[in-house]
Design a protein around this nucleic acid. Sequence first.
DNA 1: ACTTTATATCACTATATAGCGATATAGCAA
DNA 2: TTGCTATATCGCTATATAGTGATATAAAGT
Lengths: 121, 121
Amino acid sequence: MPKKDQAKPATTNTKQLPDAALELIAHRFRALSEPVRLKLLSALMQGEKNVTQLVEAAGTGQANVSKHLSVLKQAGMIATRRDGLATICAISDPAIFQLCEIMCAKLKAEHDERSKHLAGF
Amino acid sequence: MPKKDQAKPATTNTKQLPDAALELIAHRFRALSEPVRLKLLSALMQGEKNVTQLVEAAGTGQANVSKHLSVLKQAGMIATRRDGLATICAISDPAIFQLCEIMCAKLKAEHDERSKHLAGF
DNA sequence: ACTTTATATCACTATATAGCGATATAGCAA
DNA sequence: TTGCTATATCGCTATATAGTGATATAAAGT
């Protein structure tokens, strides 16, 4: 039997992805929209790290890092396991590498274009 | 003459990308972290559209769409040109297609793994 | 038992921004 | 000019969340 959509019957959502999917995608991108979280992911790209190491890498408080890690975890980007007192974190989805590569390349291209008129070398 | 490093001498930014770059990248991802903006981009993937058409596609107010468009424009994801009364919008960076593809694939994989409702596309 | 260490969570403030209605600006037509 | 249309911007409220310090929980050693 057909499923019941839970909200708006009148929304002009003629084609494309359904609103629910857009919200999920937006939620994923939002997890990548914070400098501290990017720094955490950047640190994890070198390999597993425990929370203390990540606090040091992030340059912000432990409570804050813990919250950011839970955001990344909920977005399916990192996985954690307990090892004695430590919580070990690791990147759980290699797609993150691609996403960051693309975004970095984009930035680099724009940066190069912008610094054309500046550079003597 | 030697180049001068531009910012923070004290930040524990031992390696990796500098903080300024992380903020720029985060800013780009943040532009993609809103369902309405994703819907606008999704509509623009079919080709150029003016603001009125986008308002209809987005299903929210004109003032709101205008603000979202300016966010996308500032993030370098769309370009606009004036044509009489209309402002025509178009995707200006094909990298957006890649980013959304990757994120969608990620979602789809997780979704398939979990259950199987919420129609495909 | 108590202590120390590692991490998570709570309570709070401050800031950012999504959404809305109203108004302002820009371009065209009469 | 006036009027109409398309878009941008302003003023505002409400919500989300980044950051902090304090506290709670958990695991191991004493």
